[in-house]
Amino acid sequence: MTDPGNTAARATPARIERPSALAFLGYGAALLVILWSFRGAGWSGERLMHAPPALADFMTRSWPPATDALGRLGLKMIETLQIAVAGAALGVVLSLPIALLAARGLIAGRAVNTAVRVMLGVMRAVPDIAWALVFVVAVGLGPFAGMLAIVVDTIGFCGRFFADDMEAADKGPAEALTATGARRLDIAASATIPASIPAFISTSLYALEKAVRSSTILGLVGAGGIGIELKVAFDLFDYPTAMTVIGMIAVVVIVVEQLGIYARKKIIGVER
């Protein structure tokens, strides 16, 4: 029997565990992939050395930011926010029934769950700017195309996370209702969805922040919002106006993010 007092006889565990041969090969392979990716991305130390003077030149030429077009840019920023809010709101509303179909063990069978999750995966995989191009072709230039792009992007994001939230919800209340003979849809609506509401609110606020960020660049492809002003300013080498647009985007995105943090804390008591 081991003497409990004789601790000196025991070997002290190593601070860092020695990796297995397979793990070592894995680390080596990961490092090679990263280096290969840098090469593919055109990493150039020489060009990086020349960047600061060029950047300083841009800053000099763009300073002070233009204020003469603030009224017009302000209206475009309002349109940007309208695209984001309308797109995110519609996207969140449409996400709920889609998420109900995507969540495993809720109202639909495994085949439907898989099909809906694949569809949501496609929605997320295609970037919002690509969706904007598609909708510009479908409905023409302007903010409506941008809003539709945000709707699709939001469904891809919220649909998946709402489904995950519902799958992770406490199963106890659902089991209690199942034992009384309730139908699956009744159980989802009465127990699973209310239990998932804090997570839904958090996800929806992230979706809104994401939509605001996205909507600022959709104008680059003619889908409305302030992005078009940024493109035109750069095309015309009007760097002071470009700097004003960049500043406005930064302020709006930061303000929306802070509002999101405040709202999450206020509504569901979570700060993250």
Binding site: P173, E175, A176, T180, G181
Partner: peptide, 29 residues
């Protein structure tokens, strides 16, 4: 199951809903 019920250790009420809503859910069967 509409003739049965389950009372569990963790009570299993829906936390964000009112007491009245939770009891009305007992009629869903």
């Amino acid at each position: 199951r509409a003739q049965t019920g389950l009372v569990a250790q963790k009570h299993n009420l829906v936390p964000r809903l009112s007491v009245l809503s939770n009891v009305i859910h007992g009629l869903l069967g």
